[in-house]
Amino acid sequence: MKTKTELRMVRTNCHSFILCFLLFINGIAKGQQAQPIIRFGVIADIQYAEKEDHGSRFYRNSIEKMDSCIIGLNKKKLAFNVVFGDLVDQGPKDLKPIMAHLRKLRAGYKNVLGNHDYVDVKDKEMLYKQFDMPAPHYVFEKANWMFIVLNTNEVSEYGANENSPFLKEWRDLSATLKREGRKNSLPWNGGISSIQLNWLENNLKRAQNKQKNVLVFTHHPLYPENGYEALNNREILRVLEMYPNVKGVISGHHHEGNFAYYNKIPSIVLEGMVETSKENAYGVVELYPNKIVLIGHGRMTSRTLDF
């Protein structure tokens, strides 16, 4: 039979073991949280072209910037890379050297179409094939995340084929925006069709059913509104805000970069690579269970966004 002293020692040892075990489990949880679930590279508005510099845009210099960008991204352990449109300034005639550079990315790449990518293109609905894309708009998944790539050039004068229903949709939308005095009714802005909007909502429902978080990738920003936003950004945002698993929107197009919350949805606009003669602009996004971290290089702004 144990003495009172021995029983106290047993209880003390048990308590110490339980405390150590809980601290060990807590340490594992914190360690897991300290590591991102997914890490991917981001590039926007390379806008390479064989043409003279104009203002703050140095078109030929984008090749040299891509060299250092690829070296930097290849040093990281990434799941993939995303280019947010305007790979070229004057359409596919200058695309070959940019695609050759992108193929050097060890983690591969996902492209988004931008308005400059459509310059002098005849069959606009098939343009995506030249950019190694599965479709003009598409979805892919990694871990517990779904990534939705929109084509915000679909409804536009420059992005729709003649006699396309998308062209009529653009005319109607453009007329409405002009009547309302919206600043974004400009020839280099576009939007998504009612068909694509329905496709978006179906994928958001699918992500919700699968309990996946969502990031939306676009060329034209959805927010804030300053004249660079997609033509029907408000309709798109109304759909997105219905789904709490949408954790953010990342876009290009506005080379200065930008950021704002639309209700609880963070909208990041990435700085464009083509700006300035020497300074680069690219970054790495890290996705955690409770936050998004953007680590910017060069002109790209670093941000931490808590859920």
Rank of each mutant, 00 (worst) to 15 (best):
N163I: 01
L167V: 01
K77V: 08
Y228D: 12
G108F: 11
R303H: 12
P244C: 08
A175D: 14
E50F: 00
G181H: 05
A100Q: 15
H253W: 06
G283R: 02
H15L: 15
E50R: 12
A281I: 02
E50C: 01
P187M: 04
A260D: 15
H255T: 10
V239E: 12
M1D: 08
Q211P: 00
S68G: 00
G55W: 00
D67F: 07
S267E: 12
V214Q: 09
N111I: 05
Q33D: 14
D89T: 07
V155C: 02
I63A: 05
L19I: 13
L177Q: 05
R299Y: 08
N81D: 12
L197F: 03
S277W: 03
N232E: 04
N202A: 11
F147G: 03
D53Y: 03
Y288R: 07
E229P: 04
R206D: 10
S194H: 13
G72M: 09
P266Q: 10
A34W: 09
G159Q: 04
Y128I: 02
L177W: 10
D132S: 13
V82G: 04
T3F: 05
V285E: 05
K264W: 09
G85P: 07
N280V: 13
S251A: 15
L305V: 15
M273W: 08
P134A: 10
H137N: 14
L127N: 02
K104I: 01
M66N: 05
R11P: 00
K278T: 14
I71P: 00
E235T: 11
H219G: 09
L294A: 05
I43M: 14
Q211N: 15
F40M: 03
Q33P: 00
R11T: 13
I18S: 09
A29V: 13
G114T: 12
K247Q: 12
S185F: 06
L19G: 01
K168A: 13
K76V: 01
D117K: 10
L23K: 06
F259P: 03
L222A: 07
R8M: 11
S251G: 04
V83N: 12
K2C: 02
Q35G: 00
L215E: 05
I148T: 07
I70L: 11
K76H: 11
S251E: 03
P92C: 11
E180G: 03
N153E: 14
H253G: 03
L167A: 03
V149R: 01
H54W: 07
I43F: 04
H15A: 13
L215M: 15
A135Y: 13
G298I: 06
D45F: 02
T5H: 11
F84I: 04
V149E: 01
P224I: 11
A49V: 01
P224N: 11
N226S: 13
E241I: 14
A207L: 04
L95Q: 12
P165G: 08
V249M: 08
V82S: 01
K129E: 14
Q90K: 13
S251Y: 06
I192V: 15
P244E: 13
K30R: 12
G227A: 06
V42K: 03
E235W: 05
W188S: 05
K205I: 15
G252W: 05
Y59W: 06
L294H: 02
E201P: 02
K168M: 08
L73Q: 10
M242P: 00
L22H: 03
V139C: 08
F131N: 02
V139F: 01
P224M: 11
C20G: 14
Y261D: 07
N161H: 02
